[in-house]
Design a protein around this nucleic acid. Structure first.
Ligand SMILES: [Mn+2]
Ligand SMILES: [Mn+2]
Ligand SMILES: [Zn+2]
Ligand SMILES: [Zn+2]
Lengths: 143, 143
DNA sequence: TTCTTAATGCAAACGATTTGCAATTGCATT
DNA sequence: AATGCAATTGCAAATCGTTTGCATTAAGAA
């Protein structure tokens, strides 16, 4: 989620600094990612981008996602099912609850769980580089 | 893990009861899954099976994995990277720590984390159907 | 042993993602 | 503003893991 009224990171500046060109497709994709609250997949991003500039190709979407991921600007998620889904990396770490009926994604964060994970890894002699916690759920039935 | 000196579930009996035929390929794959401690992917299972009966096909491995998954006899994991990995479903629930350098998988279980997950889902109005907790780690450097 | 039908091997199809390549374009340079 | 060149693009073809159609084989009930 990125509408947390927090600072919008200036990726264009960062890209320029990295010697990466600011192209029309990249501007559009960046804008799409910045404007959304959800976790769209490449095809969804492609469609939203096509609405703005119909000449954009799916390949470019994929290439741009990879570029942005490498820059740390976005996170890639491999939730159950087909395609990878993306989200802007601004904001703090969080994990995801996925509604398996609607596909909705709800974000949450548990300091306690994060600490327990660290503890477990440490006891096993490891450092966590990254982790993934996904809760696949159904809306609770009344009563 | 299944070598926990616990009862070896009799899937052949269960399959017979379900009206599913006990074929030579299925016997072999079941034996492979029962004998291993790790989380092999379809290709690895195919290779181990081929060593026993070279006529087995990869398609049959995939079909059998799907059948066994449907029976609840195995779990399918989609760890980072290419192929799905499988493990016999005997034993209690556990989550995984993946050594990103070696690919090794270490199993762990945290009653506390499990409880916290439940609590989080409940507060959001959901019931957890299944979940996924994976810690991608590196061996801790000395000192 | 016979018979019916589920299960198999094979090759082709699949869906998501990546890649080779020729054409385009950002942008640093005049 | 015009130039030059490497980075980026669109397109089509390739890749990878997995699934599927179909003719053939083989469980296992009778
Ligand atoms: Mn998120
Ligand atoms: Mn396991
Ligand atoms: Zn987390
Ligand atoms: Zn768990």
């Amino acid at each position: 989620m990125n509408q947390h009224a927090n600072q919008k990171p200036d990726y264009e500046r960062e890209m320029r600094r990295a010697g990466v060109r600011i192209t029309r497709p990249r501007k559009i994709i960046l804008q799409i990612l910045g404007d959304t609250d959800d976790h769209p997949d490449a095809m969804e991003i492609f469609q939203r981008a096509s609405a703005i500039d119909s000449s954009i190709s799916l390949s470019t979407v994929y290439r741009t996602m990879k570029l942005l991921e490498g820059m740390g600007a976005i996170h890639r998620h491999a939730f159950d099912g087909g395609r990878a889904r993306f989200e802007q990396a601004s904001g703090e770490h969080h994990d995801h609850l996925i509604d398996i009926d609607t596909g909705d994604v709800i974000e949450f964060h548990s300091t306690k769980i994060e600490a327990l994970q660290e503890e477990i890894a440490r006891e096993l002699g490891y450092d966590i580089m990254h982790h993934r916690l996904e809760l696949y759920c159904r809306k609770r039935r009344k009563g």
